[in-house]
Structures are given as structure tokens and as C-alpha cells.
Write a protein that binds this DNA or RNA. Sequence first.
DNA 1: CCAGTGACCGAATTCGATTTATAGTCAGTC
DNA 2: GACTGACTATAAATCGAATTCGGTCACTGG
Lengths: 189, 189
Amino acid sequence: MNKKNDILEAATRSFSMFGYKATTIEQVAKLAKVGKGTVYNFYDNKEQLLKEAVLLMIDDMKKETENNFDPSISFMENVHQSIVRLLNYREQHLLFAKLLEEERQLQTPEVIEMISSINREIVMYISEKLGLAVERGEIRPCNVEVVAFVFLKSYLALVVDWQTTYSEPLTQQEIAEVIQQTIISGLSK
Amino acid sequence: MNKKNDILEAATRSFSMFGYKATTIEQVAKLAKVGKGTVYNFYDNKEQLLKEAVLLMIDDMKKETENNFDPSISFMENVHQSIVRLLNYREQHLLFAKLLEEERQLQTPEVIEMISSINREIVMYISEKLGLAVERGEIRPCNVEVVAFVFLKSYLALVVDWQTTYSEPLTQQEIAEVIQQTIISGLSK
DNA sequence: CCAGTGACCGAATTCGATTTATAGTCAGTC
DNA sequence: GACTGACTATAAATCGAATTCGGTCACTGG
């Protein structure tokens, strides 16, 4: 079962570097050192390959936040720690950023669908966490879905959009600080 | 000097409805009930016309916040009131939304440049206001430029992006509330 | 005179026919 | 029977012809 993994890794690298449209299955096969047909022994089609790559990316990031949740500190502090940790997920951000770029510039239908699916997924995930925190009385009651939406948009704006307007990317420090100062502390009691 | 204004109004309407690329000078002339050449007696070219339309839009919104600033209430409350008022600027939002759409979908160079110029302008404006508020001790010290950036992105995400993901637009009430609950109260002392 | 005009021009864009690239298949190989 | 790469059908890139539209300017009517 090593080849299946090699193929997915090769595909992920290629998607991250060149985007969905510009990666060819033949390229992926070459990178994974298998024949083109072998790719189709493990994955139904190109779109499926993208889905698996994205799924892995999201799962990685979810696990990171789940496994490091520390009940002995406040919800607010946990969120802050998670963000600091997630900011180190360069590869995942690279893939997501490349897909966002492709969504904007080429409007590849599969990528558009994928991005909005990822967004829905992440907003749902954050919503749940916020809902629990509200129930436990750790943050003020709020429209969790809308707040989750703003949260994600702000995070992406800082990580991805900032450097398109102001060449210099923000440091992890700056990003974590701003989110902390605004959204997180705004919600805390 | 009535014709000059007629032309600008016609252009603004057309830009708002059809976007920059899809409005033709001939259309604008017809709408303004003048000949095509007359447009060029008042405005150098199409891009200039867009610039004037956008300038007017920004000035309107700036004036609205300036004129209604109430020193007897807190900075935070003033911001909240401004947002509530600005949310009623449907026409301005329509023009901005159309330009954002065109930037994303057609990538018209003039529109891309215009959007980033508007963004810079607005971020600068908010930055100044935040800077003053920090000086006066009304809000906590922060990286004003980055906070202004997040502020604008969040506002646009709620007003423009939300309905592309979740068909139903948010009510003004919901938008103002979420911004209030997160960014504004997060910064307040 | 001169503010106003629309026919006119060339650059840019669209259109559509042809060529090229590639996603996915399958007969064959090791 | 896991794996392959030549093969096919279709989607995308290419490129020249046709069209559109921004901008000009010689003209007009008030």
C-alpha cells in the first residue's frame, strides 16, 4: 500500500506548486515513479485525487487542534495556541493558497466547488467549537455561524491576502496578535 | 455644468449595473442624453470616469461618518453607529460589489487597480481613526494598519461574500451585531 | 464662435475553425 | 494480477477573420 501513498503525496505536491488544472496525471505518475495507469488503480479520477489531498490537509489541521486542546486553560487561550500552531502548517497553507489563487484566476469549476466545500467544512467546525464554548459559558452568546465565517475570512485575509496588497507578509506573531486582540478577546467574557 | 453631472450619474449607474468593461461610452452618452463626443468634453477617458464615480462614492461615505461623529459617546459606539448608517448606502455598495465581482471574474486591469486603490484608501482612513482613538486612550494600543485591514475585510465578507456562499444575505442588524461583538468590543478597553 | 455631435479610425476583443494536449481506458507484459 | 504506456475521445489552446468600442475631429446649429 506504499504506492497509493506515493501517488497522493506526489499529487499534493503538484497541486500545491502548479494548481489543479496545471497538474497532469502523467506528471503525478512520473513524480510517484509509477505508470499513468497505476494512478487509476488507486483513484477514480483527477478530482478524487484532489479531494483526498484536501481531506488529508483538513484532517491534519483538525487533529492538531484536537490533540493539543488543554482543558486547564481558558477557551480563548486555547484558540490562540491553536492559531499559533496552525500558522506553522506551511504545506497545507500552500495548497490552500494555490487553490484560492486558481479559484480566483482560472475559475476551474472543480476548484471552485472544492474551495466552497472546504469553507463550509471549516465554518461548521469552528461553529461547533464556538457553540460548545457558549454552552459552557466560556464566551458570550453570539451567532456562531456568522462569527465562524468572519473568523475564517479574517484568518485567510491575514495569511493569504495581506501579502498581495502589501508585498511583505505578516509575521506569525503579528497575525496571532491581531486575531487575539480583535475577534477572540471581543467574544470572551 | 448640469451635463457634466448627468454624465457622471449615468456612468455610475451603468458601472453599478453592468460593470466597467460592459459599459460603453456610447451607452453612457445615451443615458445622459448627450452625444458621445460630449462625454469627452468633460472627462478625459473611460478610466477617468470610473475614478470620479468611485471618488464620489468614497467621499459620500466619508462625509457620512465625519458629519455624524458624536463626541459625547464612546469611540466604540460611534463606530457602531457609523457602520449601521453605512449599511444603508445601497448604491455605493452596489457599485463596489459590482467592481469586486468584475475584479474576480474578468480581471479587468483598470478595475483591479481601482479596487486596490480603494482598499488602500479605506484602510488608511480607518487606520487614522484608530490611531487617534489609541492616542486618546479610547481603545487598546494595536497595529492599527493590520486591524484596519481585518476590519475592512470582515465588513466586506459580511456584506458581499456571505450571500455568495449562503444565498440568504445577512440583515443589517446581524452584520452590525457581529462586528460589534468581535472586532470593536475586542479593541475597547 | 464654440458647446455639442456622430461618422470615422485603429486597437483590442470576440468568434470560430483547426490544432494540440490530456483525462481516462484497455490490451498487453512481466 | 499488479502494473504499464500506447490509444482515443474530448476539452483546451491557437490563430486569423470579423466585430466592437474607446477616442478623435471635422462639422453644425444656436
